[in-house]
Design a protein around this nucleic acid. Sequence first.
DNA 1: CAGTGGTCTAGACCACTAT
DNA 2: TAGTGGTCTAGACCACTGT
Lengths: 233, 233
Amino acid sequence: MTKPALRDWQSVRDEVRRRIHARQWKPGDLIPNETDLAAEFGCARATVNRALRTLAETGLLDRRRKAGTRVALQPVAKATLDIPVIRHEVEGRGQTYGYQRLARDWAVPPAQVSGSMRTPASRQMLHLCALHLADDLPYAVEQRWINTATVPAAEREPFLQISANEWLLAHAPYTHGDIAFSAAAADEAEAALLSCAVGAALFVVDRLTWDNAASVTKVRLIFPPGHQLRTAL
Amino acid sequence: MTKPALRDWQSVRDEVRRRIHARQWKPGDLIPNETDLAAEFGCARATVNRALRTLAETGLLDRRRKAGTRVALQPVAKATLDIPVIRHEVEGRGQTYGYQRLARDWAVPPAQVSGSMRTPASRQMLHLCALHLADDLPYAVEQRWINTATVPAAEREPFLQISANEWLLAHAPYTHGDIAFSAAAADEAEAALLSCAVGAALFVVDRLTWDNAASVTKVRLIFPPGHQLRTAL
DNA sequence: CAGTGGTCTAGACCACTAT
DNA sequence: TAGTGGTCTAGACCACTGT
């Protein structure tokens, strides 16, 4: 019995996945090298490379030069989260988006904020508080500090019509950042804004973005009880 | 002034990113096609393709055949989460991992569970409850249903020494799954296990995995107050 | 030192889709 | 229908790393 040639890298990827899944190649096993697989599959080595590279990126394979390619012992699940602009997130659910700016002021941030943003401890920063709505119900509270040394244009923006969430993406590019997810109990202000009980379990997203070595903004998004962040695995 | 050729796809990617960041190419702009960029950079089109494809995967570019490549108007941040085995997660923090099986029983799951796992509503499933520890402190509670129609070997595994979290990865491959993050208030049992107050805000991860059309397992991981899930952006 | 993956090249064909 | 990205190929050279 001869097998038909696998024509594209997706087919090769699927066949390799199938063999791993069928335990033909077991966790920890060394699999044939690219040249041999290319010969077996009847395609170019570059095609096999693309397939195996993709599988390595998802954590199913471990690849090392000279050592070869092994089936991962404990495949680390990789979940890719899309973090869209909140307006798009709401509209994507088929709901009507609403926005209210609650506060815009200049203040010296807490030491924890200036510390993590690497700004002088005594310097004032632009501080914003806003509410995002979905079908007129509270969707998320946004609390934000903006480093106007990095984004001077923000000084002239009132953020009355457009949220900082959206304005910054178009006006303040970032090179990298950190994001953290956690749970927190609602304080009185948050409970009032989100129409929930004080102490209710809120879903919290903290994000800090950088433009090279300069911090851009630090934001906390607070979601009402029941909010879920979902993704495929 | 002539520019030196860009030798590899990472250099091309960096140069394209630089131009976008410098607003030489603005959000919404059409950028030159692959052939022209290859000529400008002095490299093969495949090299440009690899660079632009990578940037499109991160959401910075929108690419469509015939329509060309545009700078994304609202770059959707893509965060890749690594979801390792809990033992590795703990050990990676330099802490000592501990594990306690709290319960292992057969039961008919709630309709919500059998419904989402697409199993007969009246069929018993293997149910597990376990506690993961870091330096002898509670790290996470694991509540799990296992579809033994898909993973019959689980019937003979006591899960006393090894957690289902870890055993399943080695013995029950999955093809795809869903994961959801949320916040929940601690009930009495959870509060006792995690040494926190009833009603405290807990971080919750719900995961459901599939082997093609057959569900494998549905698990809820519950983390004590203060737990954060972090990643780079 | 030798084997493996990582990448580049030049050319080709194809798939999709805006016009 | 024509322009663009998506991919494959065959061959080459290189980088890394186990032995």
